[in-house]
Amino acid sequence: MPSLRVLGHAFRAWRRNRTWAKHEPETPYLADLLSGSPVCLHVGASDGRHSYVMTQVAPKARIYAFEPSAFAFQVLKTCVAWHRIGKQVTPVHAAVADKPGELLLVTPKKSSGRMGRAYAYVAEAKPEGAARPDLDDTGMDVQPTPVVVLDAFCAEHGVGRVDFIRMDIEGAELRALMGAVGILDRDRPHVLLEIHPAMLAERFGASGEAVLDIFRDRGYRMFALNGDRLEERTTLVEGLPWKDYFFIHPSKSARLPDGVFKARMAA
């Protein structure tokens, strides 16, 4: 039986999903990416809100939702059960990186005293000083979490095609993508990726440019929201601690649903 705290968080997420409240601004664009029976990887699933949206815009979608936090994983499973989407969504309690094993999940404690679960990230060891370079935190919680590699996970579970990847993992994006190059090369999936330049540099010894090179080297085109307008970009938006970017491969443009991405890719 889930704890009262899990049930409280799950209820808030369930209610927001039912009323389409407080979704991220990129969420409506999933309908312009997904149709038919797509196979989706939701990496950093949290309470599963993007997984839920995927099931609504593509009712035959098959989704694997990866979440490293033990608490958030319980929330995710509860939301999946309440929405009755368990036949479509498979929750996986794991972080994603470029090699399997175990890492630490670092969750900052906000100045309000609450845990900043949305800002949690994986690390080899507990950081000294502040939990993150881009937050004013008052401490941190550290817990171990299992780690999987997407290429190996898909091979082991018979996932022979991936159509879409949603990834929001607080700076670990390069490591996760390095473990998914087989999927990128084989399937050219659409990707919605939150990129964290400061976290990449300060906690992972990487960069936003290195993340972009993964897609540039494979011929992807990149899009981002500028206000309420979707624009094509070749560089990251400067001055932001994080931002979501869409990556679409030209070889998949003809199979896109009618919508803004299909129109932009044809231009």
Rank of each mutant, 00 (worst) to 15 (best):
R132Q: 11
G182N: 06
V149Y: 03
P144L: 05
G139N: 13
R114I: 14
K110Y: 08
V89Q: 04
D185C: 00
A130F: 09
Y119D: 15
G101H: 12
R188Q: 05
T107S: 06
D98N: 15
L150Y: 00
R117D: 14
E156K: 04
A95H: 04
A123F: 08
E173S: 13
Q88N: 09
L184M: 02
R166A: 07
Y119M: 15
S111Y: 08
V162A: 02
M167Q: 03
L104P: 06
L177E: 11
E170F: 01
P146T: 14
V142T: 14
G113T: 02
A118K: 06
D168K: 10
P108M: 10
R186E: 02
I165V: 12
L103W: 13
P100T: 13
M140L: 14
G179F: 02
V89M: 07
P144K: 08
A180W: 05
Y119E: 15
E170R: 04
S112A: 07
V149Q: 06
T90M: 11
P146G: 14
T90W: 09
G160T: 10
R132W: 05
H157M: 05
T90E: 12
G160D: 12
V149S: 07
D137E: 13
K126S: 14
V162E: 00
L184E: 01
E156Y: 01
V96N: 07
R114E: 15
T145P: 15
V159A: 07
Y121F: 15
K110P: 00
T107R: 00
G116H: 03
G116P: 03
C154D: 01
S112R: 03
I183C: 05
P108N: 13
K110A: 12
L135E: 13
P100V: 13
R186I: 00
A97I: 06
G113I: 01
H157D: 03
A131Q: 03
L105R: 07
C154I: 03
A176S: 05
F153K: 04
M167F: 00
A172Y: 07
D163P: 10
V147I: 09
C154W: 02
V92D: 10
G179Y: 00
E156L: 04
G139L: 12
D151T: 10
R188I: 03
Y121N: 12
L177H: 10
V96M: 08
I183E: 04
T138N: 11
